[in-house]
Amino acid sequence: MSRLPVRKTYKLFVGGTFPRSESGRTYEAEGQNVAHASRKDVRDAVVAARKAFAGWAGTAAYNRGQVLYRLAEMMEARADNLAAVCSGRDEVDAAVDRVVWYAGWADKLAQVLGSSNPVSGPYFNFTVPEPTGVVAILAPDEPALGGLVSRLAPALVGGNAVVAVASETHPLAAIELAEAIATSDVPAGVVNILTGFRAELGPILAGHMDVNAIDVTGAGDDTADLERAAAANVKRVARGSADSQSPWEIASFLEMKTVWHPVGQ
C-alpha cells in the first residue's frame, strides 16, 4: 500500500520566515493553494527589507559573493525540487549558473563601474557604486524560476534588499527558491518573496515611499501605470528582460557616489 505524501503549504517569505498571508487568503495556481498576499504583507515585506538593507549593503563585497555562491549551492542541492516546479532541469541548471556568475561580480563591480576622476585642482576624486536601497521586483511570469533569478541576482549582488512578487501563474518555483534562500546564508529580510496578484501588489510597491527602485520587467500591460506611480518618490525604474545576464543589470540598482577631498600637506 502506497504512502500518503505530506504536502507542502506554500507560504510567503518575509523577514526570513514563512508566514501565511495576513489576509488569510490563498489562490489556486499550478494545482496548489498559494498565499494571496495583501497590502499589509507588502508593508511587512518592505519593513523587513528596509531593516535588512544596511547590514547587507555593509557586508564586505567578498562575503556577499560567498553568500550568493552558497545560494547557488543550496539551489543545486534542491535541483530536483526546483525542476519539478519549473520547465525542468535545464532551467534550474541555467539559474544556478547565473547565480554563480553574479556571485563573482560582488567584489569586481566597483572596479568596473567606479572610477577615479582626474579633476583639475588639488583634489582626489573618486566614484564608487553603492546599492540603491529597497528594490521591488515584479518577476516575469515565465520562465518561473529563471525569470525571477535573472532579476533577483543582480539586485542582490549590488547590496540591495529585495521585495519580489513571484510569477502570478507559476509561483511555486519562487517559494521553492525562497526555501533555498532561507537555508543559505542570505540574511533574513534581504530577500522577501510575495505571491499573489501582480495587479494588486504592483501599484502598492510602485507607490510605496520607502521603496527606492522598481523592476517592472514582469509588469506586462501595467507598466505605464506602475511607472507613473513610481514617480511619487522618484524611483529608479528598471525594464530588463527575463533572460539577461550583464553587469549593467546590476548597475540598474546602483547609485554612483562621488567623493572629493583636497590634496594638501
Partner: peptide, 25 residues
C-alpha cells in the same frame, strides 16, 4: 551622490554629479 570632504561646492567635468532618492537619477 556627491560627498565633499573638507571642501564644498567643487565641480569638474571629469567628476560625476547626481543624486540619490528624490534628488534624481
Amino acid at each position: 551622490g556627491v560627498v565633499w570632504a573638507n571642501t564644498f561646492n567643487r565641480f569638474d567635468p571629469a567628476s560625476p554629479f547626481g543624486g540619490y532618492k528624490e534628488s534624481g537619477f
